[in-house]
Design a binder for these strands. Structure first.
Lengths: 372, 372
DNA sequence: TGCGTGGAGTAAATCGACTTGCTAAATCGT
DNA sequence: ACGATTTAGCAAGTCGATTTACTCCACGCA
């Protein structure tokens, strides 16, 4: 934390905008001349550099006073060019408008800004690995000090520190923040099992989503444990591609809707759906309701994530909560430790696991006794 | 557009990561030495500077080939320091995790990235004007070339080009992208009126939301036009502040929920609610359902924005569509014209208006004949 | 007297790319 | 054949801050 940008703005007065005087740009040199000191001295003092130890307190105060009075603001580019620090990181999310990404970014933002960092964002739209790495290059060209990749997978050692949220590939220098999928699957299948559900349908994640494989493995394992069989006819894989010829970005709700219809069309019976995420779950519920099924009367639906709207949907959505904001914060904390070379406390681990939570709400109920 | 960063990355090969050779950093000078030319010449050529006119095509090709071969990537800081261009803009949204912000940013991102720009984001959380201007300063310190402020209001002339989405204060150099609230209000009240609703409740926006005043004015006008009276007991103003002692950011769903209860508690009859936005509408519907009211059987509810989930909610949400993505794109287009000094086509206007659209779905129906 | 030591700063070299104003050689015009 | 262009390219200064390696002076003290 000793590394945040040094000269903080002082409140109350702003730039040259407030008063009319269209003064010149205030550079270090201007401040120095104003004080009759050299730029070097002023820089040393303002940065509280250890080398400023020999400068008397009185002089230091004069420097601070002048900087404040002239409203000196260090030139970001110059400072960064010299010191090779940009105080910014890059964030790659699947799609900025998705609730999932929004909540993770909310956590990221909070932690970053309070540390004096800023961030650049781009949506990778679940593209293939090469596009993802292209974005990485773009960000590196922008001199970011590190990357947070959300919901995508790195396949090549990145040229800077990186944290992957929901990533599963161990790469040197990369930490993955992951949820404990075994517990998540056990929670949810246990819950459905208790309610008497035997025939459970599944939405598998997009092939390019980093969580997909691990979650599916965990589901299969938990199902085995519980003596449930997975019927391939009851498993559909979301594509992540726009399903309609719209120019809108891939719409998770619509995908849920469409694939729920697919599921129904296949004709295999099921009494519950374990969706890939809350968004697809809502789309699916909409589809079930549209064909006259009751939720949870005829079909129970469970989501994943617990996005904000899950508690307000109708029916309220039973789901596995991922601490998304926390995961964002965690990603930042780990990344900044990597960046500052402070190896301690998770900064070097390949995986950091967070715990899911079972949130039982209104979209799950006892399995219907009749057939479906 | 002639101003986008010049040397584009070439695909197929990436940095030094692919092959083992941990080569030095490739600077202009290195490329120049490699070619036996001076850095000046290489710079001229790579930037397609007009001054490079005298350099023979053959040499130019050698330069490009070498840059590509060595995978030269210009140092962003150095370039920006010298040319005083950062190719980045700042974006200030109410809260990055809200669907409204997400959709606007999605439009912003698309347009910006395709132009070679990047952006920094921060959430102003509907704070007061001084906090907002503080964020502006922060971004300016980061050398952004312009600002897009979403759902907040500038009260002081910013020190750089700016576009305000849903802003209503005319300021020199600032363009506001606004929706035609008169049409929006007329659409929606007309729709409710046709369905026989006379007693309509309203959620007013947060006092700090830029749209609040204008929308309310339009609603009052449209109501007058239609011979509807606005009962103050049926108007509640959202606060934008966290309503519970949680550490979570302000939650619009919860606000809608809470204030719907407030409305019910007041005891004044109403058959329809015109919500401030879709999120609050969903919260309100949840509240109505929780106390046993049917939507739209007992109460019709209309939202505003048409966020993605509106079509998948249950009931599907009748709403006034704001072209949020388009507004984001528009904001970028205007801002970049301002930045490039090209005054044409809206870049200098104080207001640019977009049209709302009435989306009738399942949450509105005929007013009940009995009383409520 | 002469040497060392600490105090108070400073000069100047970066960081890497851009850009203005040249120069040296080749070619042209008459 | 000789000045006038054109061609091809370079040197060096900038952008603004950081940082290392000094300098200069006063004082202590042996």
């Amino acid at each position: 934390m000793s590394e945040k940008p040094q000269v903080r703005r002082k409140r109350g007065e702003r730039a040259s905008g407030s008063r009319g005087g269209e003064s010149k740009v205030i550079t270090l040199k201007v401040v120095a001349e104003h004080l009759g000191l050299s730029p070097a001295t002023v820089s040393l003092v303002l940065n509280r550099s250890p080398a400023a130890g020999s400068i008397p307190a009185e002089t230091q105060e004069r420097v601070f006073a002048a900087a404040s009075e002239l409203n000196y603001r260090p030139n970001y580019m110059a400072r960064s060019l010299r010191s090779r620090r940009s105080f910014s990181v890059g964030v790659l999310v699947p799609e900025i408008s998705e609730p999932y990404a929004g909540e993770v970014m909310s956590g990221i933002e909070r932690r970053l800004l309070e540390t004096g960092y800023h961030y650049l964002v781009a949506s990778h739209r679940r593209s293939n690995a090469s596009v993802l790495h292209e974005y990485l290059d773009l960000m590196r060209d922008r001199a970011v000090e590190g990357m947070i990749v959300v919901g995508g997978e790195l396949h090549e050692h990145p040229s800077m520190p990186a944290v992957v949220v929901s990533g599963h590939v161990p790469l040197e220098g990369v930490t993955n923040v992951v949820i404990d999928h075994d517990r998540a699957a056990a929670f949810m299948l246990g819950h459905l099992r208790e309610l008497g559900h035997e025939r459970i349908a599944f939405f598998k994640g997009q092939p390019s989503s980093a969580d997909t494989q691990d979650r599916w493995r965990a589901i299969a394992a938990a199902a085995g444990e519980l003596g449930l069989t997975l019927d391939p006819r009851l498993v559909v894989q979301l594509s992540g591609e726009p399903t309609l010829a719209t120019f809108a970005p891939a719409d998770g709700y619509e995908e849920g809707y469409t694939f729920a219809r697919t599921l129904l069309d296949r004709g295999a019976e099921f009494t519950a759906l374990f969706s890939w995420d809350d968004v697809a779950a809502m789309g699916a519920i909409r589809a079930f309701l549209d064909v006259g099924l009751r939720v949870p009367g005829d079909v129970s639906v469970v989501g994943f994530d617990d996005i904000q709207s899950a508690a307000y949907y109708n029916p309220t959505l039973t789901t596995v909560r991922q601490p998304l904001r926390r995961m964002g914060e965690l990603a930042v904390e780990i990344l900044l430790r990597k960046v500052s070379g402070d190896g301690g406390d998770g900064a070097a681990e390949a995986f950091v696991t967070v715990e899911p939570e079972l949130i039982v709400r209104g979209s799950t109920g006892p399995a219907p006794s009749g057939s479906r």
